[in-house]
Design a protein around this nucleic acid. Structure first.
Lengths: 351, 351
DNA sequence: CTGTTAGCGCTTTCAT
DNA sequence: ATGAAAGCGCTAACAG
C-alpha cells in the first residue's frame, strides 16, 4: 500500500531514451521534434500512464489552464443549464472549470475582496451575478479577464439577452390576443430588484404604452411564493386582469397554483405568461418567453477561450435571441373578441 | 496596459522586512512566528493585495487543494442539488471544486482512460456515475481517493440511500391505502438499467410479494417520454392498475401528462407515486419518495475532506434516510375501501 | 523565533 | 533536431 509514486517527466525521458526537454516538446506538440522520436516519447508516456502536472507547467508558463465560473447559487435550474453550456466549450479549449457558489450580493462582496482567484485562474466567467458598477470594478482587480454571462457589463466582454425587447414581445403577444388588462408581476428580494427584473418590466411598460393600455405592475417576493401572493392580490383587484405576465416561470407557477386553487380556468379566464422556459414550463404547458440559457453559457465560454488566445475584443458584446414559446396557458380573452383576431376562437378547446 | 505584475512572496517579505520563509509561515498560519511579525506580514500582504500562487505551493507540498467532481450531466435537477451540497463543504475545507461533465457511460470510459485528473486533484467525488466493477477499478488508478456520491461502491468511501427499502416503503404506502393492482414503471436507456432503477424495482417487488399482490412491471425509455409511453400501455392493459409507482418523478410527470390528457382523474381513478422529490414534484402536487440529494452531496464532500485529513476510513459508508412526501396524487382507490382504512375518504376533496 | 538553502516538476533559452 | 542548464514561486528542512 506504499504510495505508488506517479511517474515524472524524467521517467518518460529515461524510458524513451531522450532528454527532458524533448519529452516536454513532444508531449505538448511543440515543433522541433522528429516524428520518430515523438512517437517513441508518446509510447513511453502511455506505457507509464504518465500525466503532466499542471501545477509544474503553470509555474513556468504563468497560465493555469483553469477558469473560474462564479455563480450566486447552484441549485436553480438556470445555473445547471448555464454550466452545461459552459463545460464542454471550456473543455474543448483545454481548460478546466472551477465552480464557485458565492451566494447573495453580500457574500459576493466578501468573496471578491479576498481575490482568491488572483493568480489561480486564467479567466473568470461571472454568471448572472447582477453586479453594480462598483462590484464590476472590483472584479476587474482580479487581474484576469472576466466574462459576464447573462449580464451586460459596459466595456467588458459579456453575453446576454435583450430583456426589454423580450418582455415587450411577450406583452404584445398578450395584447394581440385581445387582452387589455394585462398585469405584470415583478419580484424583489431583500437586496432589491435584479437588473433582469427591471428591464423586463420596462419592456412590458413600453409595449403597454405603445398599445395605449393601462399598465398594472404588482411587486412581491421572488419565486413561487411571491407569484402566489401577487396573484392573490390581483384576484382581489377592482377589475382583475385577463392576462398576467410573470417576470419568470417560477413566479408564474406560484400564480398558477393560486389560479387553480381558486378554480379560475387558465387560459379561459386568465391567460398566464412566463419568462425563461425552464423545464417545468413544458410540463405545465406554460406559454413563456424562452431565453437560451445553455447557449448563453456556451457563448460565454467560447468568448473566454478566444480572449485567452488573444483573438477576441476586450469588450465584445454578444446579444442572444429570445423566443416566444406558445403553449396552452395563453389565449384570447373570454369575453371580448381579440383586437386583431376576428373570431373568439378558444385556442385550447373545451376544458 | 502593461501587465500589472502581481506581487510575489518576496515582495511581501521585502515590505515586511522579514525573510521569505517567515512570510510563508505567517501567511499559512504555521506555528513559530511571533504575533508581532505575523501581524506585520499580514499587513504587508494586504497592502499589496498579495495572494499566494497555489501552483507554486502545490508543487512543493504535493497537495493541489482541488477536488474534482465528476458528473454525467450538469443539466438535470439532481446535479445542481448535489453540487449545491458539495460546494460549501469543500470550501469550508479550503478546497476548490473542479467540475467535469463526462456524459454517458461510454464517454466516461474514455475520460477515465486518459486519467487527466491524475496528479492534478487531491480527490474526486463521483456523483451518480452508475459504474460497474471494472469502471470502479479504473477510477482507482487515478491515484487519489475517490468518493462515491449517490452510488454504493464496495470497499470504497460512498454516500447513498437505500433504494430497495425506499421503494418498498413507497409501495407499501400504496398497498396500505388499499391498492392491489400497483404497477411499477422502470426505465432503461441504450446503456441498460441504472443501479437505482434496479434496486427500486427490487424494493417494489419485495413489498408486493410481502403483501401477496401480483406485481406488474412496465419498462420504457427514461424521462417523461418513457413515463408517457409506459402509462399509455398501462391504460390499455387487461385490468389497468389503480396505482402507479414511477421510478422517478420525471417518469411520473410523463405518466401524469397522459393521465390528464385522457381525463383520468388523479388520484381518484389512479394514484401516482414518484421518486426523488424534485422541484417540480411540489408544483404538481406529486406524492413521492424524497431522497436528500443536497445532503448526499454535502456528506460526500465532508467525507472527502476527512479522507484528505486522514481522519476517515478508506471504505466508510454513509446511508442517508429517504422520506415519503405525501401530496395529492395518491389516495385510497376509488372503488374499494382501503385495506387498512375504514372509510372510503377522498383525501383530495371534490375536483 | 527567524533566516538560509535546497529543491518540487516542469518549460525555456541557449548551445550543440 | 536534441540536450544542458537556469529558473518559475513557493515550502521544508536545517541552522542559528
Amino acid at each position: 500500500m506504499a504510495a505508488p509514486e506517479h511517474p515524472r517527466m524524467s521517467d518518460v525521458a529515461h524510458r524513451a531514451g531522450v532528454s527532458l526537454s524533448t519529452v516536454s516538446r513532444a508531449l505538448r506538440g511543440a515543433p522541433g521534434v522528429s516524428p520518430a522520436v515523438r512517437a517513441r516519447v508518446e509510447r513511453a508516456a502511455a506505457e507509464l500512464s504518465y500525466v503532466v502536472s499542471r501545477d509544474a507547467s503553470s509555474l513556468v508558463t504563468g497560465a493555469t489552464g483553469r477558469v473560474a465560473v462564479i455563480v450566486p447559487f447552484l441549485r436553480p435550474w438556470f445555473f445547471g443549464a448555464a454550466l452545461a453550456g459552459i463545460s464542454p466549450e471550456l473543455r474543448a479549449a483545454g481548460l478546466d472549470m472551477l465552480v464557485y457558489e458565492v451566494g447573495d450580493a453580500e457574500a459576493l462582496d466578501g468573496y471578491v475582496q479576498a481575490l482568491p482567484l488572483r493568480r489561480n485562474v486564467d479567466a473568470v466567467i461571472a454568471v448572472s451575478l447582477d453586479l453594480d458598477d462598483r462590484e464590476t470594478k472590483q472584479l476587474d482587480d482580479i487581474g484576469v479577464p472576466v466574462v459576464y454571462c447573462s449580464q451586460r457589463a459596459e466595456g467588458r466582454p459579456s453575453v446576454f439577452i435583450d430583456n426589454v425587447a423580450a418582455a415587450a414581445a411577450g406583452t404584445r403577444h398578450l395584447l394581440n390576443l385581445g387582452h387589455r388588462r394585462v398585469a405584470y408581476v415583478q419580484s424583489r428580494d431583500e437586496t432589491g430588484f435584479s437588473w433582469g427584473s427591471l428591464h423586463r418590466r420596462d419592456g412590458y411598460l413600453q409595449a403597454m404604452a405603445e398599445a395605449g393600455a393601462e399598465p398594472l405592475v404588482v411587486t412581491d417576493r421572488a419565486g413561487q411564493r411571491g407569484g402566489a401572493a401577487a396573484m392573490a392580490r390581483l384576484l382581489g383587484a377592482p377589475s382583475p386582469p385577463t392576462a398576467v405576465f410573470a417576470e419568470s416561470d417560477d413566479v408564474a407557477f406560484g400564480a398558477l397554483a393560486v389560479l387553480r386553487r381558486s378554480r379560475v380556468p387558465v387560459p379561459e379566464a386568465v391567460s398566464l405568461l412566463g419568462f425563461d422556459d425552464n423545464d417545468v414550463a413544458a410540463v405545465l404547458d406554460l406559454t413563456t418567453v424562452a431565453q437560451p440559457v445553455h447557449e448563453l453559457g456556451a457563448e460565454a465560454a467560447r468568448l473566454t477561450a478566444r480572449l485567452l488566445r488573444g483573438t477576441a475584443d476586450r469588450a465584445e458584446h454578444l446579444r442572444l435571441p429570445t423566443e416566444l414559446v406558445v403553449r396552452r396557458s395563453t389565449s384570447v380573452p373570454r369575453t371580448s373578441p381579440g383586437m386583431h383576431l376576428h373570431s373568439h376562437t378558444d385556442l385550447r378547446g373545451r376544458q
